[in-house]
Simulated scan of single mutants.
Amino acid sequence: MDRHRLTCDGLVKSHGGGFRLGPLSLDVTEGVTCLVGPNGAGKSTFFRLAAGLEKPTSGTLRLDRSEGAGSGRPAALGYLPQDPELPAGATCEEFLHYVAWVHRIPARRRASAVSGALALTHLSDRATSRIRTLSGGMARRLGVAQALIHDPAVLLLDEPTVGLDPRQRIALRETISAVAVDRIVIVSTHLVEDVRGLADRVVILHGGDVVFDGDVPALEGTADPDAPGDTDLERAIAALMGAPE
């Protein structure tokens, strides 16, 4: 049984210049949901709304605990923005201790929370390394670690694999899959290989509206043979996202 559910009910966010996200009505449960769409489709707007950084124009977005859920995890949320600012001079564990303090994790539990987050993201051997010495992939995994430090029910990862080389992307996808076993993880991405390697569910946005919501086989089934791409998944995504602007 799902422990938590992130529910959008008629969610709308209007911006100046005529752009509007929604209305969105979605129920998101445990596992990895990939949020896909061209630039300007509304992905980052959705993340800011979900993270509480912006308020919706109308509608609601709420995190509910499912009836009968057995986990003691609080209905908390972790967020990794697309361009996180990490303190270059701090060590990994110093930074995570600070984030744990920000999240009001009791002092007696901070060391175990830090070591647990480092272990989940395969950074235990870099605990005392300065952040400036980390590779791009390690720094992105540290970003995931800070989003996980308080053991949230929902993890929002905005374009986490952008700028990483293929090996780094694979390692990060493995980390994301591991932490999604018992929590809601929403990942925004432009990369077809991320969708194939991560997604239990795919939601495609175009012009602020949901144009597809389903799993990867269902998405492949919508492929237009005349759309650009080398695989059914690429052709399906390209067709749903429309012609490049």
Rank of each mutant, 00 (worst) to 15 (best):
A69L: 00
G17E: 04
A117W: 09
I184F: 09
E85Q: 15
Y98I: 12
G17D: 03
R183C: 06
I176Y: 02
R20W: 12
A178Y: 05
S135I: 09
V203G: 01
R183P: 13
D64K: 01
V179M: 01
V114D: 09
R141W: 04
S25R: 00
S14R: 15
V202H: 02
V195R: 11
L21C: 02
R110G: 06
D27K: 14
T45L: 14
D224R: 03
G89T: 11
E234A: 15
V154Y: 00
F46D: 01
C8L: 13
L233A: 04
F47P: 13
V203T: 05
W101M: 10
G42K: 00
Y98K: 12
G31I: 11
I105P: 05
V216N: 04
L21D: 01
I184W: 02
L6V: 09
E234I: 03
G40R: 07
S177Q: 09
E220V: 14
E234M: 11
L120F: 09
V192E: 03
V99W: 09
T91E: 06
V114R: 10
V114P: 08
R130T: 10
L156N: 02
V185I: 10
A69Y: 00
T45Q: 01
I237L: 12
V154E: 11
G229A: 13
T161E: 05
F19I: 04
D232I: 13
S71F: 03
L134E: 02
V28E: 13
A90Y: 11
L96C: 14
C92E: 04
R3N: 13
I149H: 00
D83R: 13
G208D: 07
G22W: 01
P228F: 08
F19G: 03
R167P: 04
S112E: 15
W101K: 14
A145I: 00
T231Q: 07
L35N: 04
A50P: 08
F47A: 11
P225M: 07
T133Q: 15
D213K: 03
P166A: 06
V28S: 01
R130Q: 04
E174C: 08
I237T: 00
H206D: 07
Q146N: 08
C92R: 07
T161W: 06
L120V: 08
V36I: 06
H206K: 15
A41N: 02
L142K: 02
V102W: 05
L24T: 06
L164M: 07
Q82M: 12
E220Y: 01
A75V: 07
A147G: 14
D151E: 12
D224K: 02
V211C: 04
A75C: 13
F95T: 05
Q82N: 10
